[in-house]
Amino acid sequence: MTPIKILDTLACPLALANVDTDQLIPARFMKEPRSIGYGQFLLHDLRYDESGSPHPGFILNHPEAEQAQVLVARRNFGGGSSREAAVYALVDHGFRCVIAPSFGDIFSSNAVNNGLLPATLPEAEIERLLAHLGSEPGPVRVDLEECRVRAGTLDLEFEIAPSWRTKLLNGWDDIDMTRQHQPQIARFAADYARRHPWLETPPGDATIISRG
């Protein structure tokens, strides 16, 4: 994962609340392999009309949206379905950071696992940031070491869980981290099985593996 320290980039204002993961990527695109790039599906049904033509007023259709690495949105961003594809869509589009007053819990951990920073700002400060950006992408600087976002004369301190900040700053991957604990996990598993013997009960019938 690419570490994040400072993002000097453009921010896209997405002045909507409750942008759930079903909107971030509609379910019908989730059959696609990741290799085709999920960026094209991001907010698809807000971005295009039923015939597939782009809505000219929608922020992601702004010519400069392609360069933006930061998205600013209203409360409860990424609520709903646990689909990590929502994060893939953001990341494949080029976003490295979403700033909002609150996020769906599963969305935030998915984001961090893909090097996307979910930065929290109080609702009033989000409104100031949105007002500053207006209706087009505008320059921002997100500094993860200092937990600050700067845009124009605004200089705001955002929040992120310390363990997530460390992971993002270093670009760490959980599986590698966990494998260092392997002996401890093995000891725990053996002890756990001793304490919960009833969990070993296999089912009565033998046809466990079905034909699918």
Binding site: R83, E84, I106, S109, A161, D174, I175, T178, I185
Partner: peptide, 20 residues
């Protein structure tokens, strides 16, 4: 609780999960 695909991969590989 529900988890994302990276976490699913983590559980498959280790039968454990990091959570706060």
């Amino acid at each position: 609780f529900g988890i994302g695909a990276s976490e699913v991969a983590h559980v498959l590989a280790t039968q454990t999960l990091w959570q706060s």
